[in-house]
Simulated scan of single mutants.
Amino acid sequence: MHNKISISTIRRALGLATLLAPLAAGAGGFPAKPVQIVVPFGAGSITDVVARVIAEHMREGLGQPVIVENKPGVGGIVGAANVAKAPADGYTLLLGSNSTNAINQSLFKSLPYDPIKDLVPVSMAGEIPAVMIARADHRANTLQDVVDLAKAAPGRLTFGIGNTTNRVAGEMLQKAGKFEAVIVPYRGEPYGLTDLLGGQVDFMFLNLPVAYPHLQTGKVKAIALTGVRRVSAMPSIPVAGETLAGFSMPDGWLAFFAPAGTPPQIIRRLNEEIVAALDDAEVRKRLEATGGYVVKSSTPDELGERVASDAKRWADLIKAANIPLQ
């Protein structure tokens, strides 16, 4: 005898299967093991600091260890490529930046990853002003001093840079000030800062939170911010555009990304945990104490729009500065 199955029974079964699909995709059991956050810059960078503060809070919500691993190299390319090639299961995240996800594709002839196709947005983590600094005993005190010194000795002044964002800033500054200097690249900002303090380079462009403690102790002095506005943490630092009309650079940012193909349910869960961390009063206090860091979260869609917009803007800046592809 054959059993008869009604149409309504089939429909109920199909409906249940649809409801259970997200669980079958793996979101229901996520996370079942530690989550790794890859930092594509060295220890001591602002990216490293932010990742570790947020990871502490995420451990509580996820109920699993959240491990931060530094994979520095080639302007963040090494770490970003590592995450792009990782399994799309939510267990490997990139705390990327405007360098790794919006600038590098316009600065390098080829990349071992596609920032748009290989990485999907999860959430913003914050915005970071950049600053040009000098040793406390350097004879230049203002940006105009720098321009005058550079014009008096073309190609003699040295500018240290630790990421691609500030590489563009250094080139744009030379163009706006109509002078020539030598750009000295470093694997990360802490390495360049060490050389600046040791007298190996004259000036350095770096993220304000990295310079902040040294500005507080008086070991270095701020020449100018490279962004479009002064910052509340140190309101006395002028913006470069106040001296050089037309000079304007977007502020940098940090944001979380996952490998393309990561299930949407897992992206939503990770976004919720990251946003919860950034909304926590203690987390905000610790991040803002770095000096100049602006805590900011987002939805995945909002981050995707920011990446697309900034990628175009940086491409235009790189083209305007005549920076050759690396």
Rank of each mutant, 00 (worst) to 15 (best):
A260V: 01
Q265V: 01
D279C: 03
I223E: 06
S298G: 14
Y293G: 05
G261I: 02
R269Q: 15
R229G: 07
L270M: 07
V275G: 05
L254I: 09
G252F: 08
V239Q: 00
R230M: 08
E273F: 10
A224L: 09
P264E: 14
R268I: 08
F247P: 03
A276I: 04
F257L: 03
E272I: 07
A255M: 05
A222N: 05
I266W: 01
P263T: 14
V275E: 00
R284F: 03
P259K: 00
S248E: 14
I274A: 08
G227S: 10
G304N: 06
S236F: 12
Q265G: 15
Y293R: 02
V231S: 01
G252A: 04
S298L: 06
V275D: 07
G227L: 03
G252D: 15
R229V: 13
L254M: 12
G304S: 09
N271E: 15
S248W: 00
V283N: 03
D279E: 09
P250D: 08
E288N: 06
I274H: 10
G227A: 09
S297C: 04
A260W: 00
L244C: 02
A281Q: 12
L244K: 01
V295R: 01
A281T: 12
A258Y: 03
P250G: 03
G291M: 13
A281F: 06
G291E: 06
M249K: 05
A245S: 15
A233V: 09
V220G: 04
K296I: 10
L244V: 06
K296W: 01
R230G: 10
A276D: 06
P259R: 00
S248R: 12
E305S: 14
G291A: 08
F247A: 13
V220S: 00
S248A: 14
G252K: 01
P238S: 04
G261P: 00
I274C: 05
N271T: 14
I223F: 05
G292H: 02
S232I: 07
R268C: 07
L270Q: 03
I223W: 04
